[in-house]
Simulated assay, not measured.
Amino acid sequence: MGLAWSFFNPLLTLTVYTFVFSVVFKARWAGSDESKMDFAVILFAGMLVYGIFAECISRAPTIIIDNANYVKKVVFPLEILPWVSLLSALFHSLISLCVLLFVQLLLRQTLPATVVLLPIVLVPLLLAVLGFSWFLAALGVYLRDIGHVTGLLVTVMLYMSAVFFPISALPERFQFWLSLNPLAAVIEQSRQVLIFGELPDVRTWLILVLLGFAVAWLGFAWFQKTRKGFADVL
């Protein structure tokens, strides 16, 4: 199937989740007059952002182990391996984004001008994903079972990052705690620019960028400090 999988995989996943939540559980996003297709588009936007996080974090613990030859036989900048994983995830998300924009254009005959702000909104996520990837890639060399933990984490984040619901749908006592989840904040801002035509909150975005830079710096520092023992362990 080649590149076709990049198209059919998110589409199939979207179809299953849309059926379960909008048909079986009769979930609605904004109100009772909302169509199932509207729900699917909003859900797809959240899954698009979550997919970048999930793909990179899932691959990170084994990315050095799977490329052991680069560690032991040649001089290779190992720190670029998480970049490769991230670029792969971005390619898949780009295909999903094209599908999303096409469906939205069919439904509404127009696209919000704020769509062009999506790359800016995603900057904090990309920085944080790189940082976590560097950290997990190095840790995975020494702790081979860390992949099981990250697999569980990725699943938990799917349900705790406002992918299937808006933060405002939660009881007030829980909204604050969920808003502390940076992934949920990025997903909410992505929906604002992709679906609702709203500008993201600048203050929240700046805080997320600073947090993303901190995670990226710490992850890279950990990677550089621990890489000296990769060859011995592998």
Rank of each mutant, 00 (worst) to 15 (best):
A45Q: 06
A45E: 03
G46D: 09
L48F: 09
V49A: 12
G51L: 00
F53D: 09
E55I: 04
E55M: 06
C56Q: 07
R59V: 08
I64H: 03
I65K: 01
D66L: 02
A68G: 13
N69C: 00
Y70G: 15
V71P: 07
V71Q: 12
K72L: 14
V74F: 13
F76T: 09
P77I: 05
P77F: 12
L78W: 11
L78G: 03
L78P: 02
L78Y: 07
L78D: 04
I80N: 11
L81S: 10
L81R: 10
P82K: 04
P82R: 03
W83C: 12
L86E: 10
L86Y: 01
L87T: 07
L90F: 08
L90M: 13
H92D: 14
L97I: 07
C98I: 14
V99M: 13
L100D: 01
F102M: 14
L106N: 13
L106V: 11
L107I: 07
R108I: 09
R108S: 13
Q109M: 10
L111T: 02
L111Q: 09
P112E: 06
A113C: 05
A113K: 12
V116L: 15
V116D: 03
L117V: 03
L117P: 01
P119M: 05
L122N: 00
L122R: 09
L122I: 01
L122P: 05
V123W: 08
P124L: 11
L125D: 10
L127A: 07
L127P: 07
L127Y: 12
A128Y: 08
V129C: 10
F132D: 03
S133H: 06
S133G: 10
W134R: 04
F135A: 15
L136C: 07
L136I: 06
L136W: 06
A137N: 02
A138G: 08
L139A: 14
L139Q: 04
L139C: 11
L139Y: 09
G140Y: 06
R144L: 13
D145F: 05
I146A: 14
V149R: 05
V149T: 09
T150F: 00
T150N: 00
L152A: 15
V156I: 13
V156L: 11
L158M: 14
Y159E: 06
Y159F: 15
M160S: 15
V163T: 06
F165G: 02
S168R: 04
